[in-house]
Design a protein around this nucleic acid. Sequence first.
DNA 1: GTCTATATTAAGATAGAC
DNA 2: GTCTATCTTAATATAGAC
Lengths: 182, 182
Amino acid sequence: MPKQTYIPCLLRLFRQYGYDGATLSKISEATLLGKASLYHHFPGGKDEMVETVLDYIQQWLVQNILSALQSEGDALTRLRRMCECLNELYEGGEQPCLFAILLLGSARDVFHDQVKALFRTWIDAIADVLIGAGINQKLARHRGENAVIMIQGALILSQGLDDPSVFQRVIQRLPEDLCRPG
Amino acid sequence: MPKQTYIPCLLRLFRQYGYDGATLSKISEATLLGKASLYHHFPGGKDEMVETVLDYIQQWLVQNILSALQSEGDALTRLRRMCECLNELYEGGEQPCLFAILLLGSARDVFHDQVKALFRTWIDAIADVLIGAGINQKLARHRGENAVIMIQGALILSQGLDDPSVFQRVIQRLPEDLCRPG
DNA sequence: GTCTATATTAAGATAGAC
DNA sequence: GTCTATCTTAATATAGAC
């Protein structure tokens, strides 16, 4: 099987156990591949697996989140489409964000630049929608950051309270919060 | 030295490397204690070290955060005092939150109940301040959650963008945001 | 592309001397 | 309370057959 096959499985493992906790043994078991086979697909080991998953998420971000933000309709509609995408990505708040996991594990330095770039892209895309809706540039930038902050925070608290309704409530109200005047 | 001596060092290590990344070798090096000495102080190994640090943070939370929230003055003043405490705890946004680290590592299940209880206590204390300021119970509860969400999210994004000013901006505006009418 | 087998290193943990 | 030395297990990684 081509290595793309294993991306969903790898994503699941890294989200469940974190970077350090997702051992090759667990990965071998979950993918039904021997360790040697894993190194055939990913010569760089676990780091290359994470890179591959991050590349996949970047693609997904462009084709879903950014696509929603640049779609037809007014700002509110587009932000709502983004939130529908997020609900899928994070499985209704039951799955954590890989970015946060990578930032809080021992491999922070390895993936930091890529995560930073992804955060920037995402924030800029939200800010652009708000600027298009007549909000001034500085405020739009802050609200773009706030959107990501609310999403990341809601995911943490949903995990912490073991209650995905926290995430649900946040993404329900987020689009209108972002569009509110001044 | 009594084991309390090593708590700040352990907290620093767990925040820097995460639960899985903070190995006994690193801990041994940082504390200047041999591994056998570490097991003398913490017979339960790394889990007991984390428990000890969590107990310390719980104490700190009661004596600083909760104390600020239950101090003299109006709601706005008390929430500002809380934010001053948070600025200290998270070193201006440069340090991540241990709760998030534990929730996103492989030891999630071990510490989940304690982290959950700490989140609940914190949220309840914020909600009580807002109820005292005339905000209705359900809204106060949501705003208490939102406060923790904003703080956790701001810490993640500060790490991600490598820019603590994100956290600074959030805790600056948080008290007034929480107190705003309806 | 996958396997078995194995090498190498590091992690968690303990025994027993001082 | 701390040490040296050691043990056991597990983690990353590779060699070489099929």
